[in-house]
Nucleic acid binder design. Structure first.
Length: 769
DNA sequence: CGGATAACTTAGGATATGCTAA
DNA sequence: TTAGCATATCCTAAGTTATCCG
């Protein structure tokens, strides 16, 4: 059954990224489309969905698209609408908060692997909701018990007393409280100074959240205190000597206009400042910042000369590089101070690192790929734009002097500390914790547990979707073929996107006719499908893959009577797909397949490639190759580093040198041997040994270099980081390290070890995904 | 029920840091 | 000691998914 599902790597023939990755650009030239029409279209589509024939459906969709090309360019309407929406949002949010206390959890989703939560228990919750479900079968163990096979865990006894205390303690969570949770820290403190190895001790005593019980009521924390975000530094006007010229004449700009001009000048080197859309968007937004006089004068971007500004910033960054050691040190210390002050929060008695405590500075928006909004002004975020989230009983962060927060709320059903609405897409941005935090780690762990549950039923699911290829219902067939692609090719789900708001990219469900080509016969193979589309981040996915006859026939059917720009799966979207998946397995969604296939591939490949008597570098090469197979499967590409050729050359030079060294050493060894044969004395014997050792050492070094070269070459266009960080169950890697006697540091750097601390701590050598 | 959207994960490139060889 | 490069970290855009709401 699963024979069809090897993800060895060769099947993915990734196309070159970069230059050609944005080639689909002019497809939907006229992107000036309007909300209103769109709405109507959607309404019409509703009806369609329920009863129209497939053929009609496709045609209609197409017609609708055509229609979209004649809009009234109602940008203002659009904006107005946005405002109203914003107000609406806020109102809803308020209501939500108010009612959130009454809200009982609907589903015990928070712990995907906690499956046996009984409703009876929910009802019997005490008034003072402490967030844990009392477990009937209490265990005395301090460790959270989890069973790899069953994905259950039994919470230890709830300590209500403990929790009340926490509330009383309010602002004082000094480490010297008698609380058992923080005792270890106290010990550390005591030892400081007296013990030279204090940092090591501290690390040993890091909090093991994975040995504690989790919240099962949907709350994310009990107590949250932080300092609020760090704002972008205010704009510093240019020195008078740095001038901007319009139409050859110097012109002093007002501060707001000047600031926006500097954004542009800093990007002058980049190719995209030459792009029409970029320039158009920039100029439009820039003019909004100008005084009426400026506006009337500066009428044409082409007559603007930013070069002095550009030179000035180049010089500045050069100067920064040339800074003396002391200055650099000073900078570093300042950064460290900021980090210490704002980079941490207290969540439930533990100090946790914040991921992004700095507010995004203003600048020009650069979307990826062919983005219709590139060049627009990303406005400066002020305190009155920020919503703070913290617990009621915490010391609330202070807004900068003379300012106010937009709102301070206390919503413990979410994990963010602060949020604001960004002005380009109107989406919300958040300040959240670092991946090493409990709240992120638990979620990550849970993600892999869900994937492991998929492992257990994937055969059943595969059987089913193969069966569904034969369904008499079009929607079922489409669903089944899409799922097959998601499973076999690790495609993303592919939500619909609003045209004109973002780059034109697709995933599985949003594939269009133009993205695939069918070849009944290609070279030696039958039933080949060629994929060519831009996926997330406008990274090109290019792949030719033989599929089963039935899939092929279905695809032909789906394509009937459709235009290039019609949806391949016109009866499917991510919502339908995920609903179906949910029925197949609790917690199953499209992306779980990516996680599952990535992790299982790593495990398989490691088994296949590893050789126990390889040297460490060779083992690491094997690991990287296994990792690479996953990266190729998931299409994690990167632009070849600018210095790639050079660095390869350097490495080759080193190899050549090493080879010379080796032959010299070998000659010397030979000579020494001859010498020894002649004289048979102790001294010459020793020399032989020394020389032999030298040869061995150089051989090893050479091998290491060669391995490194291979690795680097193979990695030219492949990014390993994304899969390592997001798709590969870290316990597989940890177990492999233990089995292979490879130090974990060779696989995970410091940050990664912090993120995966839970896995490093709990996975044994025999761990199986 | 479907569209909108809040919340959160995943993503590649840019920039900073720090190590090594000259 | 420092330039040059490799690696780590930062940054924030772009996805997915569940839920909300009319």
């Amino acid at each position: 059954m699963s024979g069809d599902h090897g993800h060895g790597g060769s099947q993915v023939n990734s196309g070159a990224k970069g230059i050609d990755s944005h080639k689909h650009k002019d497809k939907h030239k006229d992107k000036e489309h309007r909300h209103k029409d769109h709405k109507k279209d959607k309404e019409r589509e509703k009806i369609k969905h329920s009863n129209s024939e497939h053929k009609e459906h496709a045609e209609k969709k197409h017609r609708d698209k055509e229609k979209l090309k004649h809009g009234d360019g109602s940008a203002d309407k659009h904006r107005e609408k946005h405002k109203e929406k914003d107000k609406d949002k806020e109102r809803r949010r308020e209501e939500k908060i108010k009612s959130s206390h009454a809200d009982k959890p609907k589903k015990e989703k928070e712990n995907g692997y906690v499956r046996n939560t009984s409703p009876a228990v929910i009802k019997s919750e005490p008034e003072e909701d402490n967030g844990f479900y009392p477990s009937p079968e209490n265990n005395k163990s301090f460790k959270r018990e989890y069973d790899d096979e069953e994905f259950e865990y039994k919470p230890k006894k709830v300590k209500t007393e403990h929790d009340k205390k926490a509330k009383k303690r309010k602002h004082e969570y000094e480490e010297d409280e008698e609380d058992e949770d923080i005792k270890p820290k106290k010990k550390t403190k005591d030892r400081k100074g007296a013990d030279g190895k204090k940092t090591k001790k501290e690390e040993e005593e890091k909090w093991k959240w994975w040995e504690e019980e989790r919240y099962t009521d949907g709350s994310k924390w009990r107590f949250l205190e932080h300092q609020g975000p760090v704002f972008a530094p205010p704009y510093e006007p240019l020195p008078g000597k740095v001038k901007f010229y319009f139409d050859g004449k110097p012109m002093k700009l007002s501060a707001p206009a000047e600031e926006v001009a500097t954004f542009f000048s800093k990007m002058l080197e980049h190719e995209y400042t030459t792009k029409d859309i970029f320039r158009k968007n920039f100029f439009k937004d820039w003019r909004k910042e100008m005084t009426p006089e400026e506006k009337s004068k500066i009428t044409d971007l082409n007559k603007c000369n930013f070069s002095e500004m550009s030179e000035y910033f180049k010089a500045q960054s050069e100067a920064r590089k040339q800074m003396s050691k002391e200055e650099k040190q000073k900078n570093k210390e300042e950064n460290e101070r900021l980090l210490q002050e704002y980079g941490f929060c207290i969540m439930d008695k533990h100090k946790e690192r914040i991921g992004n405590f700095r507010i995004e500075p203003p600048g020009l928006f650069r979307g990826r790929g062919d983005h219709p909004k590139m060049g627009m002004l990303k406005r400066r975020i002020r305190p009155q734009d920020i919503i703070i989230n913290c617990s009621k009983d915490s010391k609330h962060p202070k807004p900068p002097a003379g300012t106010k927060w937009k709102e301070v709320r206390h919503d413990n059903k979410v994990t963010w500390l602060a949020s604001w609405t960004e002005n380009i897409q109107g989406s919300i941005k958040y300040i959240m914790l670092n991946p090493s935090s409990r709240i992120k780690g638990e979620k990550d762990w849970q993600k892999y547990e869900t994937a492991r549950r998929l492992k257990k039923c994937v055969d059943r699911i595969r059987t089913q979707y193969r069966d569904d290829w034969k369904s008499k219902e079009m929607r079922i067939r489409q669903r089944a073929v899409a799922l097959y692609f998601i499973d076999k090719l690790a495609l993303r789900a592919g939500n619909e996107k609003e045209e004109g708001e973002t780059a034109d990219t697709v995933g599985c469900c949003s594939l269009r006719v133009e993205h695939i080509k069918l070849y009944p016969k290609l070279d030696e193979q039958e039933y080949v499908v060629e994929f060519d589309f831009l996926g997330k981040d406008s990274i090109r996915y290019y792949n030719k893959i033989p599929v089963e006859k039935r899939v092929f026939k279905n695809l032909q059917l789906f394509l009937e009577n459709k235009q290039q720009e019609d949806d391949l799966f016109d009866r499917l979207n991510t919502s339908i797909l995920n609903k179906h998946l949910q029925e197949l397995m609790d917690g199953l969604t499209a992306k779980v397949f990516r996680t599952y296939n990535a992790s299982i591939t790593l495990q398989q490949q490691l088994k296949e490639l590893s050789c126990s008597d390889d040297s460490i570098p060779a083992k690491i090469l094997s690991y990287n190759r296994a990792n690479r197979a996953v990266a190729i499967l998931c299409n994690h590409q990167r632009a070849p580093p600018k210095t790639f050729e050079k660095s390869m050359q350097n490495l080759q030079t080193k190899i050549d040198e090493k080879q010379n060294q080796l032959s010299t050493a070998r000659k010397q060894l030979k000579a020494a041997k001859a010498e020894h044969k002649a004289s048979h004395d102790d001294k010459s014997k020793k020399t032989v040994e020394v020389k032999r050792k030298a040869v061995q050492r150089i051989e090893e070094q050479l091998m290491k270099l060669q391995v490194q070269a291979t690795d680097r070459e193979e990695n030219k266009q492949i990014a390993l980081g994304t899969s390592k960080l997001n798709y590969l169950d870290p316990r597989i890697s940890v177990a492999w390290c233990k089995k292979s006697n490879v130090p974990i540091e060779k696989i995970y750097n410091k940050t990664q070890r912090e993120k995966f601390a839970w896995a490093i701590d709990m996975a044994e050598r025999d761990y199986e995904f």
